[in-house]
């Protein structure tokens, strides 16, 4: 008989057979893994440049602000640079991720919940927040903690205008901002790289400073999604991560809130995070910065060049300890 009875097969043959199958499986798995790695590499490579935001609605009645940075030899960065190179972890941790994934963000209708130590808490519709505000163009430097920077022509209005309107109580010492954290619109929120919702806070007197604004646009148009549409904070003398994007909640507190970055790496990200060339981050030297679009690095300026306006907020404070 040619057909072997199962008991005729020597056990060593079975082992070999299994080993053979394992080998094949291993090779196929390794091949598949290598293929996947190559494809993801190619995908990354092809998208490295990101996708500039489509142009949005023009904003009306925008005036030039006397508070814009004296730009001098500093060129304003391009729309393409400002909308393809973003840190907005809710849409992924690569710089180009927000430009690819922020399309999924629904910005209408948009409400901001205001609560905590204030006389007029509530859910404020964005149109209501903007009512009666004169929009200004503020050309500000933006300095990232990763030692790169841009110059951005934001459109917005003083944060203090809104704060006054909701009447913080005498107990309010801090103001906390939350970014939207909706995993159905924001792919990055599905992984726990930071504590969501993204939380950043200021001392109330910092928030009342005329340089701090709520921004709703740039280059005269409504805010692109990857830059924090429809409304975001801009605090130009602090590292970029302090300026929360796509804000859905503003809370007034008596105690100092714990910020998302501060919680993730307390030794690296302090509460204040003022731009300060004399205090190095353990991984990035803060003495110089690469302005996007330039080769030679610029010297980083104290308070990002806004020392004349804001240094008095911190008089008497040890800025090495309160980093």
């Amino acid at each position: 008989m040619l057909i072997k009875h199962p008991s005729d097969i020597r056990s060593s043959e079975i082992t070999d057979q299994k080993l053979y199958a394992n080998r094949r499986e291993f090779i196929m798995a390794a091949g598949a893994a290598a293929g996947a790695a190559l494809l993801s590499g190619a995908n990354r490579v092809l998208h490295a440049a990101g996708q500039p935001a489509p142009h949005g609605r023009k904003l009306d009645g925008v005036i030039k602000s006397p508070f814009s940075a004296a730009v001098g030899d500093e060129k304003v960065n391009t729309w393409e640079q400002i909308t393809t190179y973003n840190n907005f972890y809710e849409f992924g941790t690569e710089k180009e991720s927000p430009s690819m994934y922020a399309k999924a963000l629904k910005t209408e209708p948009w409400r901001v919940r205001v609560d905590g130590e204030c006389a007029k808490p509530g859910d404020y519709h964005i149109d209501d927040i903007l009512k009666g505000q004169t929009l200004e163009e503020r050309v500000y430097r933006l300095r990232c903690v990763e030692a790169w920077s841009m110059v951005v022509p934001w459109i917005g209005f003083p944060l203090s205008n809104f704060v006054k309107r909701v009447e913080p109580t005498a107990k309010a010492k801090f103001i906390e901002f939350n970014t939207l954290a909706d995993p159905s619109q924001m792919v990055g929120v599905r992984s726990p790289v930071l504590r969501w919702p993204y939380t950043e806070a200021l001392r109330l007197d910092e928030a009342m400073h005329p340089l701090a604004i709520l921004a709703v646009g740039l280059y005269g148009e409504e805010m692109p999604k990857q830059d924090g549409a429809p409304i975001r904070l801009i605090v130009p003398w602090k590292y970029g991560f302090k300026s929360a994007k796509s804000i859905v909640r503003i809370r007034f507190t008596e105690r100092q809130p714990l910020n998302s970055w501060q919680e993730s790496q307390p030794s690296e990200y302090g509460f204040y995070s003022n731009v300060n060339p004399a205090v190095d981050h353990p991984r990035w030297t803060q003495a110089t910065e690469r302005r996007i679009g330039e080769f030679f690095r610029r010297k980083t300026l104290m308070f990002n060049g806004y020392a004349d306006q804001v240094a008095s907020l911190y008089s008497g404070m040890d800025l090495k300890r309160n980093y």
Partner: peptide, 30 residues
Amino acid sequence: GWLVWAGLTGHLSANPLSDLTNETGLWALR
């Protein structure tokens, strides 16, 4: 080859110098 081509033709990100460092580092590791 790709990095040189992409760098010269503007196919890298807005911060091409950082891309060059990161990509060559990744390829060394690979």
